[in-house]
Amino acid sequence: MIELNNVAYSYGGGELLSEIDLTIQPGDFYFLTGPSGAGKTTFLKLCYGDLTPTAGEARLFGQDVRTMDRDAHAMTRRRIGVVHQDCDFLDHLPLADNVALPLTVSDRNDLEQVANLKELLSWVGLKQRAKALPPELSGGERQRAALARAVIMSPDLVLADEPTGNVDWEMSQRLLQLLIELNKMGKTVIIATHDMNLIRAAKAKVQARVLRIANRHVQLAGADL
């Protein structure tokens, strides 16, 4: 699904990440941890093709990122749900439209999907807020909405950058449950977080592996959590 062969990334100056060799298979569940500034977000961006490696080779769904054109990238994004740390929305459209945006831009806005949208909104506890504009939402509400938007296309891969940073424990359990359900359906999930409690909670329910970024390298951590 995602193959990184000796990948490195630098924003100019020294390399932030280097020598990453990793293959992510369908159905995998990963946590990504590391100190802030270590490159968690950069790693996720490499995984959905927002950044092109400065060295090495990255393949998304079998395609080399370097040879993909803009439309190929757009098509890949439809198979990858992304939850950004700073959840970006279209501020002039109500929440429900924002969550349905991936359907809208890929012309899949049919009735069945509208029913899914309602179910999804109630799952993330935003049913009452469907008509609200994004600037009116709290930080936690925005994160939940971003997660809903990321999964509405039923993507093959969900990448979440600190999806539970602004929500209470109960809600973070709920969001985690949603991601675990998706994983059980065969979807791949990668969650960047430094919330160890969340990782422990997940490990009880699903076979999750932990990737740790340290010294510019991404390593598979042992079971010692």
Binding site: H73, A74, T76, R78, D88, V105
Partner: peptide
Amino acid sequence: KIIAVLRLVGAQDSY
């Protein structure tokens, strides 16, 4: 910013 959001959710340039 709007274009970035649209790209993120998989909109093609033509759209």
